[in-house]
């Protein structure tokens, strides 16, 4: 009961701040709203008994990804970005795609895939040791692939940015 109250509190603030992200004109305000939204998602992860994921959410998203977003916003011209709205010609495309994605989400949520396969809510907290054991036994290969992925991201970012600073 109390858990449901806390979930609703975090979910409402998350949806509200997500709406603020897309409706505020100033990109810095949007970025700050996104921080609020990601913090609520971290709180929901705690409610789902995954405290490690919650800390990672704050670490990576609020700590690192938002720093990147704010740097990109600062490199941009904020005055100009404020004046620019969504291009008129592409608006009909957005209006067309939103209901399709919305119906898709509702179909997944209310469809059988969530309930029939027996995903039960975790009762016990997921321990970091459990995660580590799974990572280094069952998911050893994907773990090593992650390092290649990160390497590719690093090299790609340097090559793209190098054109600008030369």
């Amino acid at each position: 009961m109390a858990e449901k109250f806390f979930f609703l509190m975090f979910a409402v603030v998350a949806v509200g701040s997500a709406l603020a992200v897309i409706s505020l004109k100033n990109p810095v305000h949007s970025a700050l709203s996104l921080i609020a939204c990601l913090l609520q998602v971290a709180a929901i992860f705690v409610l789902l008994r995954s405290p490690f994921l919650a800390v990672v959410q704050v670490f990576i998203y609020v700590g690192a990804v938002m720093v990147l977003f704010l740097f990109v916003v600062l490199v941009l011209n904020i005055k100009k970005a404020q004046l620019e709205t969504f291009p008129k010609g592409r608006r009909w495309f957005a209006y067309a795609i939103v209901p399709v994605v919305g119906i898709e989400f509702l179909a997944v949520i209310f469809g059988k895939s969530f309930t029939a396969t027996g995903y039960e809510a975790a009762v016990e907290e997921v321990k970091v040791a459990t995660l580590g054991r799974a990572l280094f036994t069952e998911y050893l290969f994907p773990f090593e692939v992650v390092s290649i992925l990160l390497l590719a991201a690093m090299v790609g970012a340097i090559i793209m940015a190098k054109k600008r600073w030369d």
Partner: peptide, 18 residues
């Protein structure tokens, strides 16, 4: 607020994330 910041900040942020 008209974008005086260097693109260099971006590359440092990317390395930080990784």
């Amino acid at each position: 607020d008209i974008g005086h910041f260097r693109v260099h900040f971006f590359i440092i942020a990317i390395l930080f994330i990784i």
